[in-house]
Amino acid sequence: MDRFLSNATNRIDAKGRVSVPAAFRSVLARRNIQELYCFQDFVFPAISAGGPELLERFERQIGAADPFAPDANQMSLLIHGGGVFMKFDAEGRLMVTDFIRDFTGITNEVTFVGRADHFQLWRPEAFQAAQAQAREERKLAGSRS
């Protein structure tokens, strides 16, 4: 498969690096992604990460809108002002920077969460809570239909 699926939690080492799960590294290798575009998620306390095509997708949306429209300005503020490029080290690790820590509250562990065409970095407890809430909301929505 060429999608980011499942989730895995890894410890941050003493130098502030975390290993990207092997399944995610395989997808990145198949897609020939050498550098990640990362941005602060719009909804969750998570960092979303993907290849350059992720940024390009958002820039196409921004480019198709009226450049003076509030939506286009907000999207640019979030995508450009809340985004960075990050590189892996030789062992497939990412540096857990203040950009990541300050937005997510991550301290000593990172949960990697597959989101099909990209993945996210979460504080483990926040991911568990968000997933439990989503499951409960889906269960309630199913019982109403």
Rank of each mutant, 00 (worst) to 15 (best):
T9I: 09
N10M: 10
R11M: 10
R11H: 13
R11G: 05
D13S: 07
D13A: 07
D13T: 07
D13Q: 04
A14K: 03
A14S: 12
A14V: 07
A14G: 07
K15D: 13
S19C: 06
V20L: 00
V20T: 11
P21D: 07
A23K: 14
F24V: 08
F24G: 05
R25H: 02
R25C: 04
S26H: 08
S26K: 14
S26I: 05
L28D: 05
R31P: 01
Q34R: 14
E35M: 15
L36C: 04
Y37E: 11
Y37T: 05
C38M: 13
C38D: 02
C38K: 03
Q40T: 08
D41V: 09
F42C: 12
V43L: 15
A46V: 06
A46M: 05
S48P: 02
A49P: 10
A49M: 10
A49H: 01
A49R: 02
G50S: 04
G51L: 03
G51D: 08
G51Y: 02
P52H: 07
P52W: 02
E53M: 13
L55K: 03
L55W: 00
E56M: 07
R57P: 01
E59N: 15
E59R: 14
E59W: 04
I62G: 01
I62A: 06
A64W: 01
A65P: 04
D66W: 12
P67T: 04
P67M: 04
F68W: 10
F68K: 11
A69I: 04
P70Q: 06
P70E: 12
P70N: 08
D71K: 15
D71R: 15
A72F: 03
A72R: 06
N73M: 06
N73I: 01
M75Y: 09
M75T: 07
L78A: 15
H80F: 07
G81A: 09
G82H: 09
G82D: 11
G83R: 10
G83I: 05
V84K: 02
F85S: 14
F85L: 15
K87P: 03
F88M: 14
F88W: 11
A90L: 05
E91F: 12
G92Q: 11
G92Y: 01
R93Y: 09
R93D: 06
M95T: 14
M95F: 12
V96M: 06
V96K: 02
V96N: 04
T97K: 13
T97S: 15
T97C: 12
D98F: 00
F99T: 12
I100G: 01
R101K: 15
R101Y: 11
D102N: 11
F103T: 01
F103H: 03
T104I: 05
T104Q: 03
T104D: 00
G105N: 09
N108R: 14
E109Q: 15
V110D: 00
T111V: 11
T111F: 08
F112C: 05
F112T: 06
V113R: 00
R115V: 12
A116H: 12
